[in-house]
Write a protein that binds this DNA or RNA. Structure first.
Lengths: 347, 347
DNA sequence: CGAAGCACCGAAAACGTTTTCAGAAACGTA
DNA sequence: TACGTTTCTGAAAACGTTTTCGGTGCTTCG
């Protein structure tokens, strides 16, 4: 029969077999073959079966390119990220990649490395590839410039919201996360709660702090040490800040760290000072960065921002927009508490 | 002039303007327009200029789909990864993404999540999209099943080599890395060197150990503690092994950890025991996982496997194969030493 | 028995390019 | 003036599909 391959081995996806070959093999016209394979009703059952069998026998695989050309839909979307190496884009990207069923939609990955020029380049390339939609994922959860309203395809912004409110943006809930962290500590019976966090220039740091302070205020409390300890996103800062904190107020019974990295530094110093976690001081982190949180001593309770789900929702919203139901505004995806052993009720 | 957009704003990449429009606008035929824009010689300079100007004025962007259909080249490649979340695929992916200039080639990202079914699905999709080539990046540096020889496009395997020697695979140099680590410690004047590493089922663990032992043997040395300490890829194991090691042989003067995670555990215990690093014991890690290595106390000397470069080379080899120069066999990409403060010469 | 209706099929146009090839225009030469 | 060359241009085919629409043959009904 087929001359190229031995029987039994997986049929080679032969690039050269076209619908014409299938049609000829089945003894029908290309038009009929097309209709038969696409489940169009106007073809006799017997004929359809013959065509399908022919297609299988020749291991026909339709040329998506040709299909796109006529249907004006490529079944592709562009994923424009500004920092691939950053740990935030990856989960989002995974969620998005997974929300588009692989049968329907494939994603073009582009890393602009936080460079506007490169981004423009990629954008041009994607548009000339006729993607059906775009997801733009930013490096930091701060506002970024909109790609503009003149694009021929729908766009969804993830993580970093667009500065144009008419665009649709999905963001993490940093305020809610901060609130959630403090709430958990309160539930554990802690009252003297400190907050050590990162660079105050980051919106994320401000938002988390705001959520934390709000929740504290609801209980009539102030943060231990009097104020929020802003600094840097590093273990070293976590260590330094903790030392200062312990000097200034000895009775602290919980520390909310603005990131898991910082939390690692906090734990390190507490351990050094022989202060038991969680019995004397409870510690909670932020991000649920597995390698840091799960390996910590003790394993770290933390806030997970649900980035993967954010990616999935972004994909869903984009699909909706591609179907003609665009959205706009900023949608916030809630985080969740992940409890490990660094927090526990008092006594 | 143009009715859709205000003057001054970036020209909207109008999806609907076609070469015909440009041709009509410039007063030539589509054939001539095409040749003018593609730099074909057989068109008068004056005509070419007119066409180019028309194209710019209408902000024409050629339909890549139509081009692919006739040139039989899509300018796309598939990136089939088995674990996106794993930290190994990302740098490789970045290197590859960056080696293909964005103007020429775009990459389809597919995450098979280490599932053969899903992989097959993605493969079908990619082939029907008529990618020009494929990069397959594995989750672990162990051999994986070949995609087969019957594919209509060239394939390059990265990180996890194919089990078919006729395929081209690119892998990291774990043996060389182990050797390099020990060599560095020797140069620092250390002689009583222990090796604490991860799961012995991983080829990577075995290879790194082999390299280390070879280099030690060249100096007539055995590892401190008598043998390699295999265990798990975790901080906890690093801590436990270090405690056992210190009990069994008190005079160790260097520890080579099989991963940065393990190294963190090692450092932790040394710190606890008030054993100074690097003056009394030098510590070297493996992987150069920034967040762990750079934040360690002291910052960790480690081996970087150059994954990004591996990705770049994979892209180059694939390009070569697409030009008709396929390769085969396993190519090893050397790692490099990254010195920080956890190692230093004795005395 | 003729007309109408129905089920099925295929010819052809379309999508937006590239490329081939024939012809037109301009020019130099005999 | 006639002819050959060179330079430029455009008509048309091609890529592999989908979709429209007209046609064929069969059934049904008056």
């Amino acid at each position: 029969m087929s001359r190229g391959s031995t029987a039994g081995e997986p049929a080679p996806a032969n690039r050269n077999v076209t619908l014409r070959d299938v049609a000829r093999f089945a003894g029908v016209s290309v038009a009929t073959a097309s209709k038969a394979l696409n489940g169009q009703p106007q073809v006799r059952a017997e004929t359809r079966a013959r065509v399908i069998q022919a297609a299988e026998q020749l291991s026909f695989s339709p040329n998506t390119i040709a299909q796109s050309l006529i249907t004006q839909r490529t079944g592709t979307v562009g994923l424009l990220t500004s920092d691939l190496e950053g740990r935030f884009s990856i989960p989002i990207l995974m969620g998005a990649e997974d929300a588009f069923g692989s049968d329907q939609t494939s994603v073009f990955l582009c890393d602009a490395r936080d460079d506007a020029i490169r981004e423009k380049h990629h954008l041009r390339a994607l548009l000339s590839r006729r993607v059906d939609g775009l997801i733009v994922v930013g490096a930091r959860p701060d506002t970024r410039a909109s790609l503009g309203r003149e694009l021929p395809v729908p766009v969804v912004y993830a993580y970093a919201p667009s500065d144009d409110p008419r665009d649709l943006s999905l963001v993490t809930d940093n305020v809610g996360g901060g609130r959630m962290a403090v709430d958990h500590l309160l539930r554990c019976g802690r009252r003297r709660i400190a907050h050590i966090t990162g660079d105050p220039d980051y919106g994320a740091a401000q938002d988390r702090a705001r959520g934390a302070l709000e929740r504290l205020a609801e209980e009539g409390l102030e943060p231990a040490g009097g104020e929020v300890w802003f600094g840097m996103w590093s273990e070293a800062w976590g260590r330094g800040a903790t030392r200062m904190l312990l000097e200034r107020c000895t009775d602290v019974d919980a520390i909310f760290a603005g990131s898991d990295e910082i939390a690692r530094g906090v734990l390190d110093v507490l351990h050094e000072e022989r202060i038991d976690v969680p019995s004397r001081v409870a510690v909670i982190g932020f991000d649920n960065w597995k390698v840091l949180a799960a390996n910590a001593r003790p394993p770290l309770t933390t806030i997970d921002l649900n980035l993967e789900q954010l990616g999935r929702i972004a994909a869903q919203r984009l699909s909706a927009a591609m179907e003609g139901n665009p959205g706009s505004g900023v949608e916030t995806v809630p985080g969740r508490l992940v409890t490990r052993e660094s927090t526990a009720p008092l006594r």
